[in-house]
Amino acid sequence: MTELSLAPPLREFAAEWLKYRRTWRGSIVIGLVNPLLFLTGIGIIGKLIDSSATGPLGGVSYLTWLAPGLMAASAMQMGFGSGGFGAFRAAAPGGGYRAASATPMSPTDILLGSLLFVTFRLSLLSAGFLLVQALLGAAPTWWAVLTVPAAALTGLAFAAPMAAWGIATKRFSTMQTVFRFVVQPLYLLSGTFFPLSTVPAWLQKVAYASPLWHGVELCRDINLGRLTFAAGAIHGGFLIAMVIAGVLFARVTYRRKLHE
């Protein structure tokens, strides 16, 4: 009975939550262990950097510099996965969307419910990351708390367009190819691991077009407590525009796929 009183997108959220409850233990462990491994592993490189280099990081320890960027990059990976692969699986025969689209819920309700759930998982992931990051002393100020929504926004900026595309894709292998040739390069080359000032100018300009770069910069500036209004508007605006464009596009592809 309670379900009937929920707004339609929340019903889709509830359906995905029920499924998630079966595997949440595993994903929480992974969600905490992954950042712990990454931050301790790369933290050791950080010690080498801090003791040798000068300049490019502006006096900040490498770990503190890296952690928020890595948080944004993880959010991107999850956003791509839950958005793209998630929509692909849910729309396949036997997937959750097939059942949902036979109910009074509209394709847009299903889309919004799914994205809401992705947002929830992104926030959970980022919060776990922040916890580990803080324990390792890489969250210098309370401002760091705001990196959680910033990272979630970064993930969502990938999830929404990917859902639009994932639901319409025929082959799973196409998505894997995109992950390999688009997401992984972004992951490595969006200024996550090293400042872009060290690479050639043309490559820097390419990176400015990367949504992940905006997410990384946003999270990093927040974590260091140095976010200016202009930078926040540019980075945040870019990501929000990606989300909106993704949702508008996904409304069309969801309707086409679910209500042929």
Partner: peptide, 11 residues
């Protein structure tokens, strides 16, 4: 490019 050149310049 990332680990060798990017990180390399820092280390």
């Amino acid at each position: 490019l990332t680990m060798g050149v990017g990180l390399g310049k820092l280390v």
